[in-house]
Design a binder for these strands. Structure first.
Lengths: 307, 307
DNA sequence: ACGCTATTGTTGAGACAGTCAACTTTTTAG
DNA sequence: CTAAAAAGTTGACTGTCTCAACAATAGCGT
């Protein structure tokens, strides 16, 4: 897809979703509170207490409008404004009545959202929320303080890893479909490795998003040697030390599982991966030129002794 | 994820995207035209000619408001209203000046969308538009008059097929992760089959969305016999005859490739697939109970002679 | 302490958006 | 032919959003 197509798709989606949001907001009109009032109540309820300027920031509203809104809601008894340390601004909080309204509005919005979700089959529902999380993650960028966890794959994620890496190396390295088929075989080999205690596959989960993965299994033809494979980190989550964490986990696991050595095969064009291997203590054993996936490559064998 | 989580995710996304749309609409405020005027110009430009009531429908606007908007735009010389067959309504069309404005507004909106897309890495951009298309497809339902095409897989789609089917049969049949690993092997086997002329994999593309797939390859140990595998149709696209089309294509291909027989293995709990095989002329050869993917299953071997 | 600047909130004026109801004209259905 | 429905117009009104001027306070550097 070209940029022009992407722009057209995005604009079509914006028009479409403007209508969806409009539909959901219509539900609000049954309540005696105006849309902006409801949004303010919701925002204060979520934060427990704030100032007017924070609300303006969060809701992208005008200060003047906010001032009037706060007065109206205070008159209605939903809001109390206690003077704070800064004498220019008041700390706004919901009164008990306001809190009740907050809960009511929340319940109504939940019901509206539920009405959109219930007619969907389970797979579509899963898809829908995944797509929403994805859009939010991409446009907002990675959460700065997100937590990184390594976990085994959920159902559907092996296929996802194949798809992501096939696509990623096609875009970044120009590799063709042969690569996707190769890694399909490689993941099948991981499955075929007999002893579960000697192999492991980890998904890097950053703030709930799949950010990368790695696996390790016994090397063929070599005793007490582990083979590290398929290290990858999503472009959107690079620079957060995820690759390093994944490799470190494989080394830790290999040592604990009784391996004496970890080997891996990579291509020299994958520079950031190579830096991670080097930093972890791997050493280059052998290089070999080859032609694969429609590209001229320089394959590298690296190894790490676990003393 | 439970329904409660899904609702929370959806509402978070709605709040998030309300702000994105707000950002994009701010770009409009630089032009001398108000937002609703711009939307009307855009809608007429897209349709070439319409009536006021169709615009109300399309833009979810009030008739009264539309009436005034049409007058204002006519006064500004952007709009001409020719009387139509129905004397109650006018056919609205853009004047040459209106068309210029339409193009200008479009260019400005394109630029705004482009500003959101350019900072993204290529994979994220691909993801973003795919997620947008997905949301639109799910919430709007399948396009009624969409065209169905069968095509070879694009890069990333083999992995996607594995992920989708792993997830689908987990949700619909309760099968566990073993199934996903099995089909990873099966797709790897497809790749390993040597002669390209004797195998084929088709993606069912319905209005640009991946709606299902199937493949065929030489059966092991049986001469001139083809094995049909991995028929599946996305839940959202069922009832459109896609499964039947896929099976028919495999039969057509097998006959053309010189096969004398097509065999397949399926489970009796997959009722809709069985109906398709029956309707195509397959006959049940053998049944066999087995325990796989965490479920008690009844495997079925079907065969079709190509005379 | 002093002045300068930025931030926070208030207020008035006005344009625009959205709703509701009454009304005319025309079409359609029975 | 009549009644009901649909398309569009108009007036009245409320709510939303923006702009600009203004006051009070906070923070900063000298």
């Amino acid at each position: 897809m070209t940029m022009v197509d992407d722009i057209a798709t995005m604009r079509a989606f914006n028009r479409f979703y403007t209508r969806i949001i409009g539909l959901l907001e219509e539900g609000m009109h049954n309540s005696p509170y105006a849309l902006s009032e409801a949004r303010v109540v919701h925002e204060i309820g979520k934060r427990n207490a704030t100032t007017a300027s924070e609300l303006c920031e969060a809701l992208a509203m005008d200060r003047g409008q906010m001032s009037r809104l706060v007065w109206r809601l205070s008159d209605l008894g939903l809001l109390a404004s206690l003077p704070g340390a800064d004498k220019r601004s008041n700390n706004l909080a919901l009164t008990p009545q306001g809190d009740t309204i907050y809960r009511d509005l929340n319940a109504a919005s939940d019901a509206d959202a539920e009405n959109l979700l219930t007619p969907l089959d389970p797979l579509s529902r899963l898809d829908l929320v995944a797509a929403m999380r994805r859009i939010e993650a991409i446009l907002a960028g990675p959460v700065p303080g997100g937590t990184l966890t390594l976990r085994p794959p959920c159902i559907g994620e092996i296929g996802q890893l194949i798809a992501r890496q096939g696509l990623l190396y096609h875009l970044e390295q120009g590799w063709n479909h042969e690569f996707e088929l190769l890694i399909t075989r490689i993941y099948a080999e991981f499955d075929a490795a007999p002893d579960p205690a000697t192999k492991g596959l980890w998904i890097a989960d950053y703030a709930g998003e799949l950010a990368g993965s790695i696996f390790v299994l016994p090397a063929p033809d070599e005793d007490r040697t582990a083979q590290l494979r398929m290290l990858y980190v999503e472009p959107a989550f690079r620079g957060l030390g995820i690759g390093k964490t994944l490799v470190a986990e494989v080394v830790r696991f290999s040592r604990a599982a009784g391996y004496r050595r970890v080997i891996l095969w990579t291509q020299d064009c994958l520079a950031s991966a190579r830096r991670i291997y080097q930093a972890t203590g791997f050493e280059l054993v052998e290089e070999e030129k080859h032609h694969s996936f429609g590209a001229d490559l320089n394959g590298q064998y690296w190894a790490l002794n676990l003393q």
